[in-house]
């Protein structure tokens, strides 16, 4: 009885899931095809004589290893940096008492309404003025503070009773010590959330590094991939192979941590 009633629901959900997966399937399938097979129409679903040639060629055609290295450096700095700056700022906004705290917090939050498009031109000017154009500095430093992460962490810190804070200070714990020894360990899920956002954000960021880099060797992965796509306009097998190995790391992380990723997004939506 239970199962019969749910059959139409499953049919709809499976149809939806198939349309979500199909582009990924098509990407991987194309990436293993020979050029001859790619030009078949109607197309074949599964490669008839699978080859890894596309992967080998795409990987060596442009410096993808370098792009990966750049992205890993940027992502590592961003994840650590965002966690440290967010913890410090969120701590001040949640637990320290000082005049103007709430006003400052609201002013900071209001910055989130500004669309990214407004930043393109003036950020370019500021980064040029700092002499950071085409350096790692331009790709990393501006992203070391995330307003939304400060917001999420402040909400979390506020949920921890003030009694802990008072008691710790009376027992001779320093303010810094309380943050790192008590608040941070108690807030692990939220810290993982902001770390994940920083990781995904840096792995997938595109417009910013597109504008801030000229040198091939400085390009992070998405910019490198986009130039590769523009150069290889008709080599569909090569492009799909490159797209596959550029999304693979994130998808692997996603499948291992999918519960945490999805819950992070869900939580951020309701509070945001």
């Amino acid at each position: 009885m239970y199962r019969l009633r749910n059959v139409p629901v499953h049919v709809l959900l499976i149809a939806g899931a198939v349309s979500m997966i199909l582009p990924f399937f098509w990407m991987v399938s194309t990436s293993f095809k020979t050029p001859q097979e790619i030009f078949l129409f109607p197309p074949t679903w599964v490669p008839q004589s699978p080859t890894v040639h596309n992967y080998v060629q795409a990987w060596s055609e442009v410096p993808f290893p370098r792009y990966f290295l750049n992205t890993i450096i940027i992502a590592a700095c961003m994840v650590c940096g965002v966690i440290i700056t967010s913890c410090l700022a969120a701590y001040a906004f949640a637990k320290l008492e000082f005049p103007g705290r709430e006003t400052l917090f609201i002013l900071m939050l209001s910055m989130m309404i500004v669309p990214q498009a407004v930043y393109l031109v003036p950020s370019f000017i500021i980064v040029s003025a700092l002499g950071w154009m085409d350096t790692y500095m331009a790709l990393i430093v501006p992203w070391l503070a995330q307003i939304f992460s400060i917001f999420l962490l402040r909400q979390q810190f506020r949920s921890i009773p003030n009694d802990y804070y008072d008691a710790a200070l009376i027992d001779g714990c320093s303010r810094m010590g309380f943050l790192w020894k008590i608040l941070v360990p108690l807030s692990r899920p939220t810290i993982i959330t902001i770390g994940l956002f920083a990781l995904l954000g840096s792995w997938n960021s595109f417009i910013w590094p597109l504008i801030m880099t000229n040198t091939d060797t400085l390009r992070p992965i998405q910019v490198g991939l986009s130039y590769f796509a523009q150069e290889q306009g008709t080599e569909h097998g090569l492009m799909m192979a490159a797209a596959t190995f550029c999304v693979a790391p994130v998808i692997v992380i996603y499948f291992f941590a999918q519960k945490q990723v999805i819950e992070s997004y869900a939580k951020s939506g309701i509070k945001g």
């Binding site: 959900l13 939806g16 899931a17 979500m20 997966i21 199909l22 582009p23 990924f24 098509w26 990407m27 194309t30 790619i38 030009f39 129409f41 197309p43 995904l200 792995w203 997938n204 595109f206 992965i221 998405q222 991939l225 986009s226 796509a229 569909h236 492009m239 799909m240 797209a243 550029c246 999304v247 994130v250 998808i251 996603y254 499948f255 999918q258 990723v261 999805i262 997004y265």
Partner: peptide, 30 residues
């Protein structure tokens, strides 16, 4: 289901654009 429906969200837009451009190919597209 939840995992599959959410998969495109974590995928980079650059890769998404490349794959869909190929899907929309006027002569050879899926």
């Amino acid at each position: 289901y939840r995992t599959l429906y959410f998969l495109p969200v974590v995928t980079s837009l650059v890769a998404v654009a490349m794959v869909w451009k190929w899907i929309y190919h006027p002569r050879l597209g899926l």
